[in-house]
Design a binder for these strands. Structure first.
Lengths: 193, 193
DNA sequence: TGTACATCAGTGAACGCGCGTTCACTGATGTAC
DNA sequence: TGTACATCAGTGAACGCGCGTTCACTGATGTAC
């Protein structure tokens, strides 16, 4: 059946959005079949929209990064002046974010799997780390913009590791303690003055 | 054919050692078949040694953690008094460790995949984080042992995240810069006095 | 305005493949006599 | 010391399953006349 004009673009959007959440929740091993079934479609149609699963993974990652940035911007806007960095750290290392893998930061959800992905996928990673570092850099201490950006990159990678480790722990008490300690320490170590 | 007395134990050891490296290099998705083929055996024999793939994964993880601890202890022994923490950080975030996934820290290699593993596997993670924190805690600043241990846990999770992100980047320059900045910052932020 | 036809998003069978696990079998060795 | 036999680590075919990808097909709509 032929579909109305913008139908195809909408379907593509739905696939990327669903993939973005599902890859984070279940890993890069999620199948095209599962994905399309969740959208009440069959796997065959997938290739009308994407050349390969890797292309989808790269786009889904990029989408997840955009969502992540939106969430960070929202935390910054609500924060009192001077407390922006604390707001970012507290949000990123909150128990809510920890429990919400499919809606959370894609680096924390997928980092160790990404090192095994082809170039297409890892280049999305480069761009994401760069833009996250630039965005967070303005709230860091440091003499030059370059130094603040570098520091922000380190903080970002540190937080993603803490979140990934917290999620991998089986003991809930350990998880909460790690997150709480990390929030305190990162704000102290990376905050302005 | 029946084998000499200690033969079975030796084979089991070889499987765990190979799995430990291979899971880190290629992820938890590595198959039993690939693994046994690399040891010049067939997949069928695997189940004389292990109940399931998950059991092997848990044991391989534990083994990798032990190797990791040995490497950390070696770095500490070689370090001048007072510079132990710097030695640990410089070793963990070295370009050598970054390039050596299969022989490196299993948390950096597998963290995001571990959150999706069954309890058996994640409990190995609890023990590892606990023991790494205790071991590294003695070189941290802080009033009480408990505080130093907590700090060490945060540093460990931070370093594993930085290493995982560094490995996922496609740009070698970005990778080296991130590692270098992180070494400096962690030593400064977590070091004694 | 009415009709014939081209379009193409989505369907579902099929491709070769590898997965985790099971199981009947093999055959060199250790052990019992 | 010699022989018969039990053991059991490892083999390889087979199980049902899902993977990524391809492709001939469907059929409601937009378009051309």
């Amino acid at each position: 059946m032929r579909y109305p004009a913008e139908h195809k673009q909408e379907t593509r959007e739905r696939i990327v959005a669903a993939a973005s959440r599902r890859f984070r929740r279940a890993g890069a091993g999620v199948g095209i079949g599962q994905l399309m079934r969740a959208l009440k479609m069959t796997h065959g149609g997938f290739y009308r929209h994407f050349d390969s699963k890797h292309q989808l993974l790269a786009e889904a990652l990029t989408r997840a990064f955009e969502d992540s940035r939106t969430r960070i911007r929202a935390a910054v806007v609500k924060a009192p002046p001077g407390a922006e960095l604390a707001a970012i750290v507290n949000m990123y290392l909150s128990e809510e974010h920890c429990a919400n893998i499919s809606g959370g930061c894609p680096v924390a959800a997928l980092a160790s799997e990404l090192s095994r992905q082809p170039r297409v996928v890892r280049q999305a990673m480069d761009r994401a780390v760069n833009s996250a570092s630039t965005a967070m850099g303005q709230f860091m201490s440091g003499a030059t913009t370059a130094e603040r950006t570098r520091k922000a990159g380190v903080l970002f990678s540190a937080m993603s590791g803490t979140l990934a480790v917290a999620r991998a722990l089986s003991d809930g008490e350990m998880r909460r303690a790690l997150l709480a300690s990390a929030r305190t320490m990162y704000i102290e170590a990376f905050g302005k003055g």
